[in-house]
Amino acid sequence: MLRMLRMLRMFRLAVNSYNSISSTFCLALILFLFAINVSASPEVFSHLDNEPIIPIPPIPSDIDPELVQLGKKLFREPRLSANNTIACINCHVLSIGGVDGTAVSIGINGKKGKRNAPSVFNSSLHSKWFWDGSAKSLEEQIGGPIHNPVEMGSDWPEVIKKLSNDPEYVKDFLKLYDSAITKDNITHAISTFERTLLTPDSPFDRYLKGDITAIDKDTADGYRLFKSYGCASCHQGALVGGNMFEKIGIAKPFDWGSQNDKNLIPDYGRFHISGEDEHKFEFKVPSLRNVELTAPYFHNGTVKTLEEAVKLMGEYQLGRHIPDKDVVKIVLFLRALTGQHPELNQ
């Protein structure tokens, strides 16, 4: 199946370069791959059926690299903030997992936010964005931090003005877009870059794809426990979460005052957006991809370790006390969700 995908990609490449001299070469290559495919033994996919978790798709290869480069440049651009100090990358440090390792990030002029910054890796696969799901598209999400007064505290006209004063940006945009610098162009460039920030090939994904040696027995046990405790009811899909909302504190009310921190007033989550009572305390179920890199945990970053997070989740959400031996195994499974990306661990 993977080979088929690769072949498809090759075919697309061939179509793209149809007019070039290499097209004949590509066609020959495809025929060659076909021959290999036919002769290769079929792989076993049967155990993948009806699993709650599916692998992260590979990084799309048909994206214009120049566009990605521009998006990357904008991602690192502090002029997107009011005082030219905060870029996207300040809180979404790619090398350490697309997060900044703090409970709440620090915006312009040292201002602190209220919610934990989620990882930018795999962000394009979410169904909705932000903890409360208030952004319905990746592009829409980009405007959020730029306008948030405790994050970048700027606005589009200002950003466009600043970037338009930079001839290099003007040149880049004019090269790639019909118009010069606009809000749509900027968000398009950044989101395009973000779509490349996928972390496929985690050990667990390899396991899902049939490589039973990719994880050890305890980790596999951890996965079984993850399912049987009911974690996988919410943490499912490619992102192991990220595609639904759930109330925090189902079996046991969430402890808003457990830490003696003035900032930790109760956060009503989706209720702030919809105003409906049944949305009170509802948050997006976070993705557990690369979760070992994205501590601290929970929407307010109050939980420092994975073990603690797993335990607390069992109490709050499942009404279950998860024994330590199971926690260890579940954490082993969670660590196997860490995938690969060139920007990661650099």
Binding site: N50, E51, I54, S127, G237, A238
Partner: peptide
């Protein structure tokens, strides 16, 4: 009915 244990396909269908 438990035929799929994840919502990605549902979410994508909506999208």
């Amino acid at each position: 009915f438990g035929k799929k244990k994840y919502y990605d396909d549902l979410v994508n269908a909506q999208k």
